[in-house]
């Protein structure tokens, strides 16, 4: 498993994909951060994180598309599957490699918060009499970061499964974009209203299900500053289920 993990990590940086992902992610997150906080004159990071998650619709498929599809196309999976490694080990090695790049990107993007703290400190220095807290709320940021990381872990597991199902990187990427878009944006439909201000989806049951399935609706607590254990557990379960399915795909193929 460790050998496969190391190989995947190396291949992210032999190929341009690792650089492309990190470059695009960091530039985008920096721009997004400056527009949603400093430029908007706000200390709240909730819209930053919300838009960041929407960007994952495009970014996460970049990370996951080649994990298995490429191996299958080049027949190198034969090497991995005939080596003394379990299928679970192989899947986890690849998954954690993608996750490492993802978490690495998130951690580097934490540099974005520094200017906000600087601005906050400057404002506090000029206004000693303020009764409310001025500047970003560290607890809210940390909670949101953890949630974003776990949400990403779930989405990467989805991408991993789709990559294992396809033989072509491009189709893996496109299908993953579609699936993640649905998972992230599903609860948008709940907010749609007609001209009278009534929700477009009348049935409460449907709205409830859409909310329940959507990974985004579970994130809203974090962006409101609430640390939601249930949501974290939900994300971890999702990751587990999709990785389990990936292992089953390979088991199944062996018996095919």
């Amino acid at each position: 498993m460790l050998a496969i993990y190391r190989k995947e990590m190396r291949s992210y940086f032999i190929n341009p994909i690792g650089y492309v992902y990190l470059g695009v992610f960091l530039v985008f997150s920096a721009l997004l951060f400056s527009y949603t906080t400093i430029n908007a004159g706000s200390y709240s990071t909730s819209s930053y994180f919300t838009f960041l998650i929407i960007s994952f619709v495009i970014l996460i498929p970049i990370l996951t598309m080649r994990l298995f599809a490429e191996e299958r196309k080049l027949r190198t999976e034969q090497l991995l599957l005939t080596a003394p490694v379990t299928i679970t080990g192989m899947v986890l090695g690849k998954y954690f490699a993608a996750l490492t790049i993802y978490v690495g990107g998130i951690l580097i993007s934490c540099l974005n918060f520094i200017p906000l703290y600087v601005v906050g400190a400057a404002e506090r220095a000029g206004d000693n009499m303020a009764l409310t807290h001025i500047g970003p709320v560290t607890g809210e940021i940390l909670g949101s970061l953890l949630a974003v990381i776990l949400l990403g872990a779930a989405l990467i597991a989805v991408g991993t499964l789709i990559s294992a199902l396809t033989e072509n990187q491009l189709s893996a990427a496109i299908i993953t974009i579609g699936v993640i878009a649905v998972m992230v944006l599903l609860n948008v439909f709940n907010r749609l209203t007609d001209s009278d201000g009534q929700p477009l989806i009348g049935s409460y049951a449907v709205r409830f299900v859409l909310d329940w399935v959507s990974v985004m609706s579970r994130f809203s607590n974090f962006s409101n500053g609430i640390f939601d254990y249930a949501a974290l557990f939900y994300y971890i379960s999702l990751a587990f289920v999709f990785l389990f399915l990936t292992v089953r795909v390979y088991e199944k193929r062996r018996w095919g």
């Binding site: 190989k7 291949s11 190929n15 080049l74 027949r75 034969q78």
Partner: peptide, 9 residues
């Protein structure tokens, strides 16, 4: 295997 499983990069 029939097609050597090489990582070309």
């Amino acid at each position: 295997p029939e097609q050597p499983p090489l990582y070309l990069d």
